[in-house]
């Protein structure tokens, strides 16, 4: 537990530095608030806010997030396997077979996702 306390130090130093720099630039800069500075950027024209442009999103981002979640869960199971592989695998090959089945089932998933053209943007 003792060493984990030291993880607080870079947290305090890093975030403190960032906030200090932001505060410094806020107080040091000029303060001319032109009208164009305060409106959202839309490549030089006035903001066009049609009602038909609200809530039009691309579902592919949601799919990427779900795919990332599922494969991230697979990756975290690779970590305990990798930790004990060197010491256990030389004794018995069952560990490799277990992990092989796991990776094979997930490769079936990746193959299905590939074939459904979900990965093509």
């Amino acid at each position: 537990m003792g060493q984990y306390i030291h993880l607080i130090f870079p947290l305090v130093i890093g975030w403190g530095f960032a906030f200090a720099v932001i505060a410094l630039s806020h107080f040091l800069g000029p303060k001319k608030n032109l009208k164009t500075d305060l409106t959202p950027y839309e490549c030089g024209v006035e903001v066009v806010d049609l009602p038909s442009s609200k809530n039009r999103f691309d579902i592919r981002f949601y799919l990427v997030a779900i795919l990332f979640l599922v494969f991230d869960l697979e990756v975290i199971f690779l970590f305990p396997f990798a930790y004990i592989f060197k010491s256990v695998a030389t004794v018995s090959p069952f560990l490799m077979i277990e992990m092989g089945v796991f990776i094979a089932i997930l490769l079936v998933g990746l193959f299905y996702v590939w074939k459904k053209d979900v990965l093509i943007w």
């Binding site: 630039s25 806020h26 040091l28 800069g29 303060k31 305060l38 409106t39």
Partner: peptide, 11 residues
């Protein structure tokens, strides 16, 4: 960059 104006838009 430090001395530039810190623009914070209203929205």
């Amino acid at each position: 960059l430090l001395f530039k104006q810190d623009v914070v838009p209203t929205q």
